[in-house]
């Protein structure tokens, strides 16, 4: 990885720097699937796509055994890319997944050598601190639960670009935690609601303390997690006058602006389509991060 984070090194890009997806889904080979705490990390090799930017997502569906039980899952499911590495003219994509229903359950059971339908990379990625605020030079990453996935890749890209980055991650309990292996060697603080690791309590309590420090002024906050956490981060940052970018979730049928299903209310009234105008959204643009149906 070289150059600016968030800017693709290959493939066509749009004015906001997002790497463009090849047109159409493609079958990718699954090369591993391992446990990481209560989550799974699986990898697939994309023969066609560009190296994604952090914050972008893919629509995924297993090639076989999709809709195996009671006709669900039927649609593809959205997943942030948690890590990526160009390998020759292909790109290895890593996903961090929590089993919560039939789609994630099937993906958690993927075997090495199986094929996965992949469509992406899609959506608007994170932007470097100086793009969010002129003169900003540091990053604070705040992740909750499975929402740590896009922050793992973002942390790597920020490190490659020499942006000082601090990471705060929070989990509910031992079962609903994992993926820490993706954050090796970073400046990291952890919170858990049940106290099984790190600070006992919410990750936003760690953020509150950090934002009281003097060096918070030059920083931009990047957050991904459950809606209640994102809303707390949005309000804390607004109160403290710190810019924030939130990677959000909404129910998605298509991921490329076709269905208008992923509506998120805007501060100025009306809705955005999260799949094309997000999933990374500026806190200041939102009416609320508490989107009905938008996560658990």
């Amino acid at each position: 990885m070289s150059g600016k984070p968030g800017i693709a090194e290959q493939g066509p890009t749009l004015d906001d720097g997002r790497p463009l997806a090849p047109f159409g889904r493609r079958a990718c080979r699954v090369t591993r699937n391992i446990a990481s705490g209560g989550y799974r990390i699986f990898s697939a090799v994309d023969p066609e796509g560009p190296d994604p930017a952090a914050g972008q997502f893919y629509m995924l569906a297993a090639e076989s055994g999709w809709a195996a039980e009671d006709g669900r899952p039927y649609l593809a499911r959205a997943f942030s890319v948690a890590d990526s590495d160009p390998e020759g003219d292909r790109v290895r994509l890593d996903f961090l997944v929590q089993g919560v229903g039939p789609g994630t359950g099937r993906l958690c059971s993927l075997q090495e050598g199986e094929r996965l339908w992949v469509h992406g990379p899609l959506g608007r990625p994170f932007g470097v601190p100086r793009e969010a605020v002129p003169g900003a030079h540091g990053a604070i990453l705040v992740g909750g639960g499975i929402g740590i996935a896009p922050l793992a890749l973002w942390r790597r890209r920020l490190a490659a670009a020499g942006v000082p980055t601090r990471v705060l991650l929070g989990f509910r309990d031992r079962e609903r935690s994992g993926g820490l292996d993706l954050f090796r060697c970073s400046e990291l603080k952890v919170a858990s609601e049940d106290g099984h690791q790190g600070h006992r309590g919410y990750v936003t309590e760690l953020l509150e303390v950090m934002l009281r420090g003097d060096d918070a002024d030059g920083a931009v906050v990047y957050a991904c997690g459950p809606p209640a956490m994102l809303e707390a981060v949005r309000l804390l940052c607004a109160e403290r006058g710190v810019a924030c970018e939130l990677a959000m979730e909404a129910p998605m049928a298509c991921g490329f602006g076709a269905c208008f299903g992923c509506a998120v209310p805007l501060a100025e009234g009306g809705y955005m389509r999260l799949c094309v105008d997000g999933p990374v959204v500026r806190g200041a643009d939102l009416a609320t991060a508490l989107v009905p149906g938008g996560g658990h």
């Binding site: 809709a67 006709g71 039927y74 909404a250 269905c259 299903g261 509506a263 998120v264 149906g293």
Partner: peptide
């Protein structure tokens, strides 16, 4: 039109219910 309030989608066995509201 700005369309219906979310959630706008529900997956059924081999299908989809949408309540988009013609934005």
């Amino acid at each position: 039109r700005s369309g219906n309030p979310p959630p706008r989608l529900w997956e059924t066995p081999s299908g989809l219910i949408n309540s988009i509201g013609l934005p």
